[in-house]
Simulated assay, not measured.
Amino acid sequence: MTASNPPESARPRIDPPRALSFDLDDTLWPIWPTIERAEQVLHDWLGQHAPATADRFDPAGLRALRNEVALRSPEWAHDLSRMRRESLREALSRAGDDAALAEPAFEVFFEARQQVVLFDDARAALERLAQRYPLIAVTNGNSDLARVGLDGLFQENISASRFGVAKPDPRIFHAACERLGEAPADVLHVGDDLVLDVTGALDAGLQAVWLRRGGSAEGAPALKAPYHVFEDLDRLAIALGC
Rank of each mutant, 00 (worst) to 15 (best):
T2P: 14
A3M: 04
S4M: 09
S4E: 13
N5R: 06
A10F: 13
R13T: 13
P16L: 08
P16Y: 10
L20G: 02
L20W: 02
F22Q: 05
D23G: 07
L24P: 05
D26I: 00
I31W: 01
I31D: 04
E36Q: 14
D44E: 14
H49V: 11
T53V: 08
R56I: 03
L62W: 03
R66H: 08
N67A: 14
A70Q: 08
A70L: 11
P74K: 05
E75W: 10
E75K: 09
H78S: 12
R84Q: 12
E90G: 01
L92N: 06
A95K: 07
A95Q: 10
D97Q: 06
D98A: 14
D98Q: 08
L101E: 03
A105S: 04
F110Q: 09
E111Y: 02
R113V: 00
R113P: 01
V116P: 03
L118N: 06
D121G: 04
A124E: 13
L126P: 01
E127H: 08
A130C: 09
Y133H: 14
A137K: 00
G141V: 07
N142W: 05
N157E: 15
A160C: 05
S161T: 00
V165K: 08
V165I: 12
A166R: 15
D169L: 08
P170V: 09
I172D: 02
H174C: 09
H174T: 14
R179F: 01
A185I: 05
L188H: 03
H189W: 05
H189P: 08
D192Y: 05
D193V: 03
D197E: 10
D197Q: 08
A204V: 12
W210I: 09
R212L: 14
R213L: 13
G214V: 02
A217V: 11
P221F: 08
P221Y: 08
L223G: 01
K224L: 10
K224H: 12
